[in-house]
């Protein structure tokens, strides 16, 4: 079932790979996950995905160990110290979700210096010796507007819900949205609030700005904020606009309820938390001696009107629509980048 979603998500990069190299070459290698934050459902799903896939890989003898470490405070200094500990503990590779794109470069360079493979994902690092599995967040923002241009050809007023101010992901998605609006001048952004990727923050911010806005035809979001926006529109007694969702279980559940009741249509896009497992396989491939480009791109996980039921069934309550990546998927991503 999971692979069906992945197939939908990866439709654009259908490269077939039949040959699987023998995994034995990395059987004595140890891989560590250095993670900066665990306090929301996306990160929880990310850690669970890591656990599921790597424990199987360890049981199968693909690698010797794949341990996950999370810092308590989401601080750059703390994660730098954690990476130094991992170096001392002699891991062969560190898979990294970084608290800062630049702040950890010193620690990453130290790791590279002693021959450790560093693969950063989601929160990537700019240090050239590390691999980056990045998300094209700008494209993600733009895709939202492109979808709306199809749905609402006559255009209309948009409310933008942004993420956490000062985080580059927020800037990237937002600039993609603004790019999309510039190319589709039938849309105007009439209001913009920060929802911090959290339903209750988004609900509060939207409830505050709504009374001052004209009719809103669509809400462009960053994920984790769609359900809160829907609640705020309902509380204000306004017609529900097209709200782009972000693959959270509560968002998909709400969408399904509206779809069944009124035929409500929208789309949902986000990054699967299982991207940690993609990073794991990429690290394994590098340790195995594969030639891997330094910059790789993760496919989005997009759910549309006709894949909603399937996506919802595959999303655990409270979680985020997910994909567990396999060795084959990692090889496909690597081949696409070459």
């Amino acid at each position: 079932m999971k692979s069906m979603i992945f197939a939908a998500a990866a439709a654009g990069m259908a490269v077939s790979f039949a040959a699987t190299p023998a995994p034995a070459d990395t059987a004595d290698k140890r891989i560590a996950l250095s993670n900066n934050y665990a306090g929301n459902s996306w990160r929880q799903a990310m850690l669970r995905s890591w656990e599921t896939v790597t424990s199987q890989a360890v049981a199968d003898g693909v690698v010797a160990a794949a341990d996950a470490f999370t810092t308590a405070e989401n601080q750059v200094t703390e994660q730098a110290a954690q990476i130094q500990n991992l170096i001392l503990q002699g891991y062969d590779a560190i898979v990294l979700n970084a608290a800062s794109p630049e702040g950890l470069n010193g620690a990453v360079r130290e790791a590279c210096g002693v021959g450790i493979t560093v693969v950063s994902f989601d929160g990537v690092v700019s240090e050239p010796c590390a691999w980056r599995i990045a998300v094209d967040f700008v494209q993600m923002g733009k895709d939202e507007v492109l979808y709306l241009a199809e749905r609402l050809p006559e255009g209309g007023n948009l409310l933008e819900i942004r993420g956490l101010a000062g985080v580059f992901v927020d800037d990237a998605i937002s600039s993609g949205i603004h790019e999309g609006v510039a190319e589709n001048p039938q849309f105007q952004i009439v209001g913009s609030v920060h929802g911090d990727w959290a339903q209750d923050v988004a609900q509060k911010a939207v409830a505050g700005i709504l009374p001052s806005l004209p009719e809103v035809h669509a809400v462009v979001t960053q994920g984790g904020d769609g359900y809160g926006a829907a609640q705020a529109f309902k509380a204000a007694g306004r017609p529900t606009p097209v709200i782009i969702m972000g693959n959270r279980h509560d968002e998909l559940t709400w969408w399904k309820e509206q779809k069944d009741a009124t035929g409500y249509e929208t789309m949902s896009v986000s990054i699967a938390p299982g991207v940690s497992t993609l990073a794991f396989w990429v690290a394994q491939q590098i340790l195995d001696g594969a030639e891997v480009p330094k910059d790789l791109v993760v496919p989005f996980l997009r759910i549309d009107q006709d894949t909603l039921e399937e996506g919802l069934a595959d999303t655990e309550p409270g979680g985020v629509a997910n994909v567990l990546y396999s060795l084959d998927d990692a090889q496909t991503v690597i081949a696409t980048a070459q």
């Binding site: 306090g39 929301n40 459902s41 929880q44 911090d196 959290a198 339903q199 209750d200 923050v201 609900q203 359900y227 809160g228 609640q231 509560d250």
Partner: peptide, 15 residues
């Protein structure tokens, strides 16, 4: 707050 916003979230108290 959990009753109001449709459920409890891990980051609900942050602000």
């Amino acid at each position: 707050l959990a009753g109001f916003s449709g459920g409890a979230a891990l980051n609900m108290g942050e602000e």
